[in-house]
Design a binder for these strands. Sequence first.
DNA 1: CGATTTTGACCAGCGC
DNA 2: GCGCTGGTCAAAATCG
Length: 519
Amino acid sequence: MIPYPQSSPMDHQLAQEDKQLGSPDRRPAVIELDFFSGDRLHSDGNDDRASVPDSVKLHPFDDGGAMDLTLRTGVLWRENHQEETKHPSQLRSLRVKLEELKDENQKLRSILEWISKNYAALHAQLHLVMQRKASINHKFKNEALANAGVSPYGNNLRERSEPSVEAGITNQQCDDQSMVNHIGSKRALSSTNETSSDDGRTYQSVRTLDSPNVTRGKSIVGEDEEDPDNHQDQISGHQVSHRKARVSIRARSDAPMISDGCQWRKYGQKIAKGNPCPRAYYRCTMAIGCPVRKQIQRCVRDKTILITTYEGKHNHPLPPAAAVLANTTSAAATMLLSGSTATATAPNSNGNPNFLSSSNNFPHHLLYSNSTTMASLSSSSPNYPTITLDLAQTPLINDHTLQSQRTLASIPNCQTQNILPFSPPAHGRPGFLGHPHMHMLPPPQAHHLLLSNQCPSSLMGNVGAAIASEPSFGSALAMAISSIVGASTTHSGMLNNNTSGCTNTSSSTSAIITHDDAS
DNA sequence: CGATTTTGACCAGCGC
DNA sequence: GCGCTGGTCAAAATCG
């Protein structure tokens, strides 16, 4: 378990402020940190930051301006500076105020450093854990293959047993992988190791329950050397479970498909049991042999909800818009497979922990019907793990809603969660990763998690480990949303232009992780 | 005419 | 062993 600081610099400083001011409720005026606001420019078009002293500017992330952290206090300073020529008597008070602002600026800077240090430490620990898992898993896989009479370095297997672009996933799924390998080894032992030769090429297949194509014979010969999916089918459960891991995104949309920046070809359609809406099967066509597939189906209960399920990892470069979503799904899958299932919420400009609500131009085809948005992750059964990013949940959180959710839970093809709301953190402090508003239970309970400020305090801190185990997930998730936002504007032809309910300045959000009931 | 979609058939897994 | 179901294939149809 990764240790967490008991108190942050913010806590310490706020306590000090309370002492100085003599009242816990009385603090200096809160400086507004405007991370993403577009109104940093005045209506006259002048950028007030130009006249803001450097001492009251914060640029914590030198990323070319994406995280340009500008204090509105600079604007205030400028206005005060102009006023002081008219009212010299106010000069002293303004300077005092400026000093206070500078002091506050310094405090914020220290907080930022503290957060950065914690992140770096957690990331380092994650790296160590992943390395350990990778070595253990590698050893376990070799043993399983040895028992099955297959060399882990034979033929095509060699390519897959070495670190690859999929390492991000495969190296992080050892907890789940141990179980899969256990099952997979039994399967491998009972299956046939086939070696065929055609045109001088030798193919070896290790049949598993998850590789139905291997024994078909068709399509494999001739494509075998290029098709990662076939490779995937021929190797141990290491990659098999990778394929099994799914990331599902639920969103309200009138469009037949949510634009994600990738190119897809439809290869099948089925009417699944319990849902008259057909399920469409797509595979990525951006590169030959890309193993990524996705399924698209509308929720049987609410046909405005589009359920997009991604499976696999791209084996080719992706455009930025697609990359962020791919990173998100990979991170989510990793999170699921590693057994640490939790929901991350990133702060928005208002300190709102729900990053979704920070976007005033959320994709038009994602029809948020109210002022509250929710991002939730649900994981399905351990045998078929699916992690769900729910962008379509009803914002009405009450007993009726909970009852409805319970009712929906019994309906196939309609993933539902029990929802508990939580409010933004006190003092407008952002809910950074590791914030105690997020909770985690050890597996198998991890498949049914609630995130709320109403959760028992005994759960506090567990979520920190969950997020810490996947530190990239929160940011990747946020980036994915940004990606979808951008994609929506470039694919407006196929998307709904309804802007109602798109703006979102919610102060309430929910995050939940449960079993989902999708088929 | 090549690319994409449609659709019936096939296959494997799973429950009974 | 049998039937159901989900997932995939591939020929035919359609599209641009």
